[in-house]
């Protein structure tokens, strides 16, 4: 308690000052999402007054010079690249998480924590560099020709692969947490009834953790949905709905990031980009809220 006595200012004064600081900071944080939402709405109003929201969401025609802003191709681009990354990463994470929590030796689990740590820390632009150096030439030079197709390599699948890898640390970490929270007694009961270890996992661990699993996977989806730079670097950026995984796509975040340069010279363009940001903000906020409700239920049980 020596630290308490060494405070130089009178305790009452510091208490008041810090409470004021505290109240200011928390008020700021509570208002932040509101201000972001309102700010983006105000900025996209000029566009919203011109065309109906539904028409913009369902039209695929995007030609800013003519004043046509249809977001359908971008929404589909985002949805498809996210779906692809989910299909690639979810089974991998699920299996790895089961192995690391139920079977693996302690040293391997410790090593994986380090790997997860570093993978989560690598900036997205570095993943993008890796994608351009490895995934793109691999798809263009080997995978597509082997299937009798041709592609530039800058395509939906490249984006999906890079995103899948980026989602791994988040999903895996959460899934491991979920599996570790399943009570040992339940597993013991199942084992004592003669179930094998794998049966116990299938019928007890997976079933008990289902809410947590859904939450962890949807966290990965929402991360993939908002990822910008890495996807932008490998996905090709053509404003059309892709017909195959070897076609280029153009997700929403890439649209915002790519057109910053010209957006001021074309009328309503900046408004359209702000609307795209608003779309992302709302989609992800709703998505995350659902995830968090699910997660809080897991923690209570």
């Amino acid at each position: 308690m020596a630290a308490l006595q060494s405070l130089r200012l009178p305790a009452k004064l510091t208490d008041r000052l810090s409470t004021g600081w505290l109240n200011f900071a928390v008020l700021f944080l509570i208002l932040l999402p509101l201000v972001i939402g309102v700010g983006l709405v105000i900025k996209s109003l000029p566009l919203l007054e011109q065309a109906s929201t539904w028409k913009m969401l369902s039209s695929a025609e995007f030609s800013p010079q003519q004043g046509h802003f249809g977001f359908y191709a971008f929404i589909m681009g985002s949805a498809l690249v996210t779906l692809l990354s989910f299909v690639l990463s979810a089974p991998v994470c699920l299996l790895a998480a089961i192995y690391l929590t139920e079977y693996s030796p302690a040293w391997l689990t410790q090593t994986m924590y380090f790997v997860i740590d570093v993978l989560a820390g690598i900036p997205s632009v570095v993943y993008g560099v890796w994608g351009v150096l490895v995934v793109v030439p691999l798809l263009a030079g080997y995978v597509a020709p082997a299937l009798g197709l041709s592609t530039t390599g800058y395509c939906l699948l490249s984006g999906g692969v890079v995103l899948a890898i980026m989602a791994v640390p988040y999903m895996l970490n959460m899934l491991m947490e979920v599996f570790r929270s399943v009570p040992v007694e339940l597993k013991e009961a199942s084992l004592s009834l003669g179930a094998t270890y794998w049966e116990t996992i299938k019928w007890v661990v997976l079933r008990k953790g289902i809410t947590g699993i859904i939450a962890a996977l949807s966290l990965g989806i929402s991360k993939a949905l908002g990822e910008t730079i890495a996807v932008l670097m490998v996905v090709g950026n053509v404003a059309k709905v892709p017909k195959s995984v070897f076609d280029a796509a153009y997700p929403l975040p890439a649209l915002i990031a790519n057109n910053y340069g010209d957006m001021m010279s074309v009328p309503l363009y900046d408004s359209a980009l702000m609307f795209a940001a608003l779309l992302l903000f709302v989609i992800i906020l709703v998505f995350n809220s659902i995830t968090n409700v699910l997660l809080s239920r897991v923690k209570e049980v």
Partner: peptide, 8 residues
């Protein structure tokens, strides 16, 4: 807020 992407 943690989940809101940086582009937003």
């Amino acid at each position: 807020l943690w989940g809101v992407p940086s582009i937003v």
